[in-house]
Amino acid sequence: MKSLTGYISAGWDTSSSCWYISGGGSVLAFSFVADVVDTMLKGTLYLHHFGWEYPARNIAHVVLCLMAIRISNQTFHGALVMIFLLYEMSYILRLYLSAG
């Protein structure tokens, strides 16, 4: 358990976990691409239901995930997680509460 002391501290060595960070960013970026493919397979009417924000959201998310793979700044990663969570909650609420 001593090895976990200070795990999230400023001294945490991100170089040893590079595979984890880049793997997570890659999986997340791939999931957004897969979501677009899945949505397109459901038809153009379904795709247009999401409006202009859907493709813009997916492009921005993929670009930010790819940036996160290359950037090892913990502040950037923390801010990105918070932005993703807040935006996704907002997007889901706006999309589905206004739908009906």
Rank of each mutant, 00 (worst) to 15 (best):
T44G: 02
F32G: 00
R70W: 00
F30K: 08
H49C: 11
L47M: 10
V63A: 12
K42M: 15
D35V: 01
W12P: 00
G23H: 15
L41M: 15
V62P: 02
G23E: 02
D38T: 11
C18M: 12
G23Y: 14
D35K: 03
Y20T: 14
I69L: 11
S22R: 13
G43L: 11
G25D: 01
S26V: 05
P55S: 06
M40A: 12
I21P: 04
I71Q: 05
S16M: 06
G51V: 08
M40G: 07
F30A: 15
I59G: 12
I21E: 09
I21W: 15
G51D: 14
G25T: 02
A29Y: 02
R70A: 15
D38N: 14
L28I: 10
M40Y: 06
F50Q: 02
L64W: 10
C65G: 05
V36G: 01
D13G: 04
G25M: 05
V27S: 09
L28H: 10
I59S: 13
G51S: 14
Y20F: 14
A29S: 15
D35I: 08
A34Y: 03
S22H: 04
M67A: 15
S26R: 00
L45C: 00
F50M: 05
A68V: 06
V62C: 06
A34F: 02
L45M: 09
R70P: 00
R57A: 07
Y20P: 04
F32C: 03
L28E: 12
A68W: 02
A60D: 09
A68S: 11
Y20V: 15
W52M: 07
K42P: 00
V37Q: 04
H48E: 14
L64N: 07
E53N: 03
P55R: 08
Y54G: 05
R70N: 07
G43M: 11
V63W: 07
I69Y: 04
L41G: 13
F50L: 06
R57E: 14
A29T: 10
V62K: 01
A60Y: 08
R70G: 03
T44F: 06
G51Q: 13
I71W: 11
G25Q: 02
F50I: 04
V33R: 09
V37W: 04
D35P: 00
M40K: 11
V36Q: 02
G43T: 05
S22I: 14
A60G: 08
M40I: 06
G23V: 05
L28R: 03
T14V: 15
W52C: 09
K42W: 03
G23R: 04
S22F: 09
H61Q: 11
D35Q: 02
I21Y: 15
V37Y: 12
S17D: 13
L47E: 09
M40W: 00
V62T: 06
G24E: 00
T44V: 06
S16R: 09
V27F: 14
W19E: 10
R70Q: 07
G23A: 12
A68D: 03
C18H: 04
W12Q: 06
S15M: 04
A29P: 07
I69A: 09
G43F: 05
D38C: 08
G24W: 01
N58Q: 11
F30P: 03
